[in-house]
Design a protein around this nucleic acid. Structure first.
Length: 448
RNA sequence: GCGGAAGUAGCUCAGUUGGUUAGAGCGCUGGAUUGUGGCUCCGGAGGCCGUGGGUUCAAGUCCCAUCUUUCGCCCCA
């Protein structure tokens, strides 16, 4: 049996055309994050297992992470998410950081599970977090950042929906309103999280099973089912209309309207399976039928930094995975053709031109042109074919005639046109094309 | 971890109730075309039929296992 050429299960090789696409996606993320004042950070891919045990459950760490003993018999985890890491970093410098602290990173993360569409074992995830702001403005800002990133790819509002809910609200409803204890709340949260995947009758049966006999007798199941029918904040019972969590959601919605983000929706069934969320949560859904699932999400988690023994820091953030994002862009026809970084392919004409061309090549490179030279001595059609196959935009012909005249033939490989110019002119044409060529998709048709 | 589906050329796939040396299109490659890709024509290479067992005179085809991909479940960072 021969050695396999396949990449490790659930992980991907990035050939140049794949890497170009990834670079394109990441560059938009960086551009938008930095426009909002977020600064990039990074951290080791390995973390001690304790970091995750503190906030996750044992089962998740054991079953769904890459975990091993190092030579010093420490138990080490390949990071499955970035949130504990960034919380650790902030906690370590709790006193000296300038708040609000805006941070972003695009780490690769590993989780041990069966790969499926939109979920691989290794993925890259943009993490955007703002530390030290307690008000709704922080929740608003991260949602706007997420929205702006999607728009930077040319996405329109109809392509995705931003679902909003509040853990504080659900806590209030489950606790004061339904009288559930903490165990019941957690079980119910997990159940509601799956409500869209199951038949209603099965849901009601399982919800009923969570309740105690006395809660049943008090008709709490019907109360719960009634609450879950709420389509908007106004549908909630009048006694919670002035609860702080509802006021927060209203405030947030008002801010989103002012930011011209209109494709949001209050969704009382939105839970996000985490214990660490403390207030507003949001999730961005891909509306394309091929990806009928959550694309990414986030929310407020005020308790994590405090786990490191320092004063808690109010935090809101989100994580945007590259796999679901790429599915989104593909399905909606938003993937641009990204050309290589190489500006032009140098086609050498005739024998022994390579050496004579060196001065010209050096000059072009000095002026900032990225050149790949065909050193094979093959016929011109082969050289051109290679350039086309590489996805390059230009070929520059260099032969005896060009070298003596100083006029070089520049062939546009996209439309086949050809013209002769001096070096300066070639440089400006080629660099101009590089700038325009990867310009963002136009967003002229954006609705409000 | 559990269940369904699928693996034949680089890619997309055909291959009859099991029957000689395994097929197409596209792609690749050489030529027609000695300073020019995409069109046209002619030639060529390329397959342990995912892998390992089994049934049979005979297996791409039937059976089992395994690996990979994929859809769902569990879980969701």
């Amino acid at each position: 049996m021969s050695l396999s050429t396949q990449p490790y299960k659930g992980a991907r090789d990035f050939y140049p055309e794949d890497k170009r696409l990834q670079k394109y996606m990441f560059s938009k993320m960086r551009e938008i994050c930095e426009r909002f004042g977020y600064e990039e950070y990074d951290a080791p891919i390995l973390e001690p297992v304790e970091l995750y045990l503190a906030k996750s459950n044992q089962e998740m760490v054991n079953d769904e992470t890459y975990l091993f003993q190092d030579r010093g018999e420490r138990t080490v985890v390949i990071r499955p998410e970035m949130t504990p890491t960034v919380s650790r970093m902030v906690a370590a410098r709790r006193q000296e950081l300038p708040y609000p602290m805006r941070l972003y990173s695009i780490p690769n993360l590993w989780r041990y599970e069966r790969p499926q569409r939109g979920r691989l074992r290794e993925h890259w995830q943009l993490n955007v977090d703002i530390f030290g702001v307690d008000g709704v403005a922080a929740d608003h800002e991260i949602i706007v950042v997420a929205d702006q990133i999607l728009k930077s790819y040319g996405a329109k509002h109809g392509m995705y929906t931003i679902l909003l809910n509040s853990r504080t609200l659900m806590n209030e409803l489950f606790g004061s309103y339904l009288g559930l204890d903490d165990t019941q709340k957690n079980t119910l949260i997990r159940l509601i999280d799956r409500i869209k995947k199951m038949e209603y009758a099965i849901f009601t049966a399982q919800a009923d099973a969570i309740l105690t006999p006395s809660q049943r007798d008090a008709g709490k199941l019907d109360v719960l089912l009634g609450l879950l029918k709420a389509q908007k904040l106004e549908d909630l019972p009048s006694d919670v209309q002035n609860h702080p969590s509802v006021l927060h959601l209203r405030e947030l919605i008002g801010m989103l309207e002012s930011s011209r983000v209109s494709n949001y929706r209050f969704d009382i069934t939105l839970m996000r399976g985490f214990d660490y969320y403390t207030d507003i949560v949001f999730e961005v859904f891909d509306n394309h039928p091929d990806n009928n699932r959550s694309m990414f999400g986030g929310g407020r988690y005020n308790g994590l930094v405090g786990l490191f023994g320092v004063e808690p820091v109010a935090t809101a953030g989100f994580g945007m995975g590259d796999v679901t994002l790429q599915n989104f862009l593909e399905s909606h026809g938003l993937l641009p053709q990204v050309h290589p970084e190489t500006d032009a392919y140098v086609v050498l004409v005739g024998d022994n031109v390579y050496e004579k061309a060196q001065r010209v090549l050096a000059e072009l490179r000095e002026m900032g042109v990225n050149l790949a030279v065909d050193t094979t001595g093959r016929k011109l059609d082969k050289q051109i074919k290679t350039a086309v196959k590489k996805g390059l935009r230009y070929a520059i012909f260099i032969g005896e005639a060009e070298l003596s005249s100083g006029q070089f033939k520049l062939r546009n490989l996209v439309d086949g046109s050809e013209e002769s110019h001096g070096l300066q002119r070639i440089v400006s044409i080629v660099k101009d094309r590089r700038r325009i060529g990867d310009a963002p998709v136009d967003t002229d048709e954006e609705e409000l």
